[in-house]
Simulated scan of single mutants.
Amino acid sequence: MALAIMFGLVTLFALWALFREMKKKNLFAVGFAFLTLAVFGWFTVMTVIDLFHSGGWGAGH
Rank of each mutant, 00 (worst) to 15 (best):
F19I: 13
S54L: 10
V10I: 15
D50I: 06
F40E: 01
G31V: 02
R20C: 09
F19D: 02
F13S: 09
M46A: 14
L27G: 07
W42Y: 15
A59G: 13
F40H: 07
L18Y: 13
I49Q: 07
F34W: 07
H53E: 11
V45T: 12
F34G: 15
G58H: 01
L12F: 14
A17C: 13
W16Y: 15
T44S: 12
F43Q: 11
N26I: 04
A38Q: 03
H61A: 10
L35V: 13
N26L: 08
A14L: 03
N26M: 04
L37S: 08
R20I: 08
H53M: 14
A59R: 10
M46R: 14
G60K: 00
V48F: 12
F43K: 09
K25R: 15
V30R: 00
T44E: 08
L15T: 13
G8Y: 00
G41M: 07
I49Y: 06
L18A: 06
M6R: 04
N26E: 15
G31S: 03
F28A: 15
T47I: 07
G31R: 01
L3M: 06
F43V: 05
A29M: 15
M6G: 03
V39M: 12
L51Q: 12
D50A: 14
F7A: 10
E21W: 14
V10L: 09
F52V: 10
L9E: 02
I49K: 05
D50W: 06
L51E: 08
G58E: 07
L27T: 05
I5L: 14
T47Y: 03
L18C: 04
L18G: 04
W42V: 14
L37I: 08
R20Q: 15
W57H: 11
V45Y: 11
A38G: 11
F28I: 12
L12Q: 02
L9D: 01
I5E: 08
T36Y: 01
A38P: 08
W57I: 13
T36H: 04
A17N: 13
T11C: 12
G55C: 05
A29H: 10
